[in-house]
Amino acid sequence: MAREVQVTFDCADPGRLAEFWAEALGYRLQAPPPGFDSWEQALEAMGVPPERRNAASAVVDPDGAGPRLFFQRVPEGKQVKNRLHVDVRAAPGLQGEERMAALEAEAERLVAHGATRLKRFEPEPPLAFGHIVMADPEGNEFCLD
Rank of each mutant, 00 (worst) to 15 (best):
R89K: 08
D87S: 05
V59A: 05
Q72P: 00
G77L: 12
A91G: 07
P92D: 08
F70H: 14
Q79F: 05
P75Y: 10
F70R: 12
N82G: 00
P67M: 10
V74F: 09
D63P: 01
H85V: 11
A56R: 14
P75A: 14
G96V: 10
F70E: 10
D61M: 00
V59T: 08
Q72A: 14
R83I: 04
L69R: 04
F70M: 14
V59I: 15
K81R: 04
V80R: 10
G77Y: 04
F71N: 01
R68S: 11
E97A: 15
E76K: 10
P62N: 05
V59M: 02
Q79S: 03
A65Q: 15
L69P: 00
G64V: 07
K81P: 03
E97C: 11
A56N: 11
A90L: 07
E76H: 09
Q72Y: 06
A58D: 11
V59Q: 02
P67S: 05
L84T: 15
L69M: 02
Q95K: 13
V74L: 03
V86D: 01
R89C: 06
G66V: 06
R89F: 11
R73W: 13
G77E: 15
R83F: 05
D63V: 12
P67F: 05
Q79G: 02
V59S: 03
A65R: 15
E97W: 08
R83N: 13
E76P: 03
G93N: 12
V59G: 01
L94D: 02
A56P: 03
G93V: 09
P67Q: 12
A90W: 03
D63L: 13
R73L: 09
L94P: 04
A65S: 13
A91S: 14
G64F: 13
R89W: 08
G96T: 03
E76G: 02
P75L: 01
G64W: 04
A65P: 00
A56L: 15
V86Y: 00
P67H: 08
Q79R: 09
V86I: 15
P75W: 07
R73D: 07
V88C: 08
S57G: 15
D61Y: 02
V88L: 13
V60W: 00
D63F: 10
D61T: 08
D63H: 06
V74A: 04
V80Y: 04
V60Y: 03
P92K: 02
G66W: 00
V60P: 07
D87T: 14
G66D: 03
D87N: 09
E76V: 08
G64P: 00
E76W: 09
V60C: 09
P62F: 07
G77N: 11
